[in-house]
Every structure is written in C-alpha cells, then in structure tokens.
C-alpha cells in the first residue's frame, strides 16, 4: 500500500514549514526527499515517524512497524554495537547474524567496544545496521551517509541498497549521487512551495 500525504500543513509559531504539501510514497520503493536546509524535510520525516502531528491535512497508509536511521545516531552510549543492534530486534536474531552484518560494513574489530568510543562514521554505521536488522515494514533514512568518507560511503550504500530491496523506504539527502544510487522516486522540496 502506498503512503498518501494529502495537503498537510505544519507550522512552529509564526514559521510555516509545510504548506499544503502532498506526495505519494510508493510501496516497495526508496523515495528520496531533497531540498535546501530548513525547508521541512526532517519535519516531514518526523511527522511520518509519528513524532509530530500535522496542523491539518492527512497521511494515509503509514505502516505501524517502523525503523529509522536518525539524523543523530541515538545510540545507547555505554553499550557495544552488538547490544545496540540487539536492543531493537523484536525476535532476537542470532548474535552471529548481527556480528556478520557489522563485519560487512567494516566494524569487525569494534563491535564489542562501547559506542561512545567509536568515531562518528562508525557510529553512523552501527545505526544503519540497527535500522536494517530491525526488519520493519518501512525504513526512514535521515541523511544516512552523512559523515562517511567516500570509500566507506560507497560500500555502506551498497550494503543498505542490498538490504532494503523491495522495502518501502524514505530517504533524506542533499547529495544527488546518493539519490541516483539509492532512490526509485524523488521528491524535491523547495522553499515556500513544496511539491512532488
């Protein structure tokens, strides 16, 4: 089932962030949202994730089981990468599977260190594996490859692409190359008037 966003409106005090915004996010596809900073991309994602309410308009068809890579990693700092991933798995996948995924994106030697001791890029990768292995119906990716160096970014993008195939995903990015590699659909949000 596609996600239907109909004429939503969202403001913070006097500042209107989303005005009469509509879009359709196709099921089983990665939809990219692009646009300048401060245009309401993360607000839209927060609304879709259920963290914010719209002032008006409606959104239909958002699956209940959600997963996300947040703009900040939102990891449990004193625990290891393995524990952070295991935390969100409803039916605990075998630790071996978690370890295998972490190894695949270059965290083999760091998976049992507290995540507070990992670099920004490593923490980003932990949050990506967490979102992937949570195995939900929809995955939200808010600038998921931010802070990764070029070489790592490429392999992580391949990893994400391979693991979210046929899943509904919404991804925010500023990078046209990322959008080209990852996305089936593109929504461009411009200042003042946001459109599909």
């Amino acid at each position: 089932m596609d996600i239907e966003i109909k004429n939503i409106y969202k403001s913070f005090g006097d500042q209107v962030v989303l005005e009469n915004f509509s879009a359709r996010l196709k099921e089983g596809q990665v939809t990219c949202i692009m646009g300048p900073s401060g245009v309401g991309k993360t607000t839209l994602l927060n609304i879709l994730m259920g963290f914010m309410q719209t002032d008006s308009g409606e959104i239909l068809g958002v699956p209940a089981k959600k997963s996300a890579v947040f703009q900040e990693e939102r990891l449990c700092e004193s625990f290891s990468a393995v524990t952070n991933v295991r935390l969100v798995c409803s039916k605990e996948p075998c630790t071996e599977i978690i370890k295998e995924h972490l190894s695949r994106i270059g965290l083999k030697d760091s998976m049992y260190k507290p995540v507070s001791e990992l670099s920004g890029g490593m923490r980003r990768r932990v949050s990506i594996v967490r979102a992937v292995l949570a195995n939900r119906d929809i995955i939200f990716l808010d600038e998921p490859f931010k802070g990764l160096d070029e070489g790592t970014k490429e392999s992580v993008m391949e990893y994400v692409k391979a693991n979210i195939q046929d899943k509904t995903a919404v991804m925010i990015t500023h990078d046209p190359d990322e959008a080209k590699t990852m996305c089936g659909d593109l929504i461009y949000m411009g200042e003042g008037k946001n459109h599909d």
Binding site: F51, A68, F70, R74, E77, T83, R136
Partner: peptide
C-alpha cells in the same frame, strides 16, 4: 533521560525491560 533515545525506543517498539536496562539504568 535523553528524549531522543526514548523516541528511538518508541519507534523501534523496544520493550519496557530493555528500555529500563539499556536506556534508564545508565
């Protein structure tokens, strides 16, 4: 407690015991 971590737990439907152990206790 960091509200962003609680939002994360809400989104991923983390159970109360795990929330207590991994988010609240630390």
């Amino acid at each position: 407690t960091d509200p962003k971590l609680l939002e994360m737990a809400e989104l991923f439907e983390v159970g109360w015991w795990r929330r207590l152990r991994y988010i609240y206790v630390p």
